[in-house]
Amino acid sequence: MKHVLSVLVENKPGVLSRVTGLISRRGFNIESLSVGPTEDPTMSRVTAIVKADEVAYEQITKQLHKLISVYKISDLTDEGAIERELVLFKVNAQPERRNEIIEIANVFRAKIVDVGRSSLTIEATGDESKLKGMEDLFRAYGIKEIIRTGKIAMSRNSKEQ
């Protein structure tokens, strides 16, 4: 099963490779990864999506906890956490079909960020199902390129305390 791991780490060179190295060393593939500093500049947040059964997942988190650079690990999988990912789509768009594509983008509240002679670049954020839905629709026109940031996730306020 998929787990959304949110790992608070020391913001220092090499820490990301400690975290990812440990996960891959124990035999897991990281499906998605994003890293960035937090409200405290000495710390970074790593959000990683890994597929693992319960026993294996428990082992990964315990091992991660042992890294001196790791402060805190939260599992946001079952929490109904807010998940977002940013995707850039470069979609084939002959001038006569541009409007259709722009309309689809609007429906999903995505932005057109670049217009080429035969393509449009669309920036979209959202959760997995929304982005997947857009991708499916754009396929009909031909997708030239997709770039994704990797997922980030945050627990909901209601889960605090």
């Binding site: 090499g14 490779s17 400690r18 190295g21 060393r25 042992k66 890294l67 001196i68 650079s69």
Partner: peptide, 14 residues
């Protein structure tokens, strides 16, 4: 050496 030994140290510092 920090990279090379990463899987076999408890911790390391550069």
């Amino acid at each position: 050496i920090v990279g090379i030994t990463m899987p076999v140290v408890k911790h390391s510092f550069l």
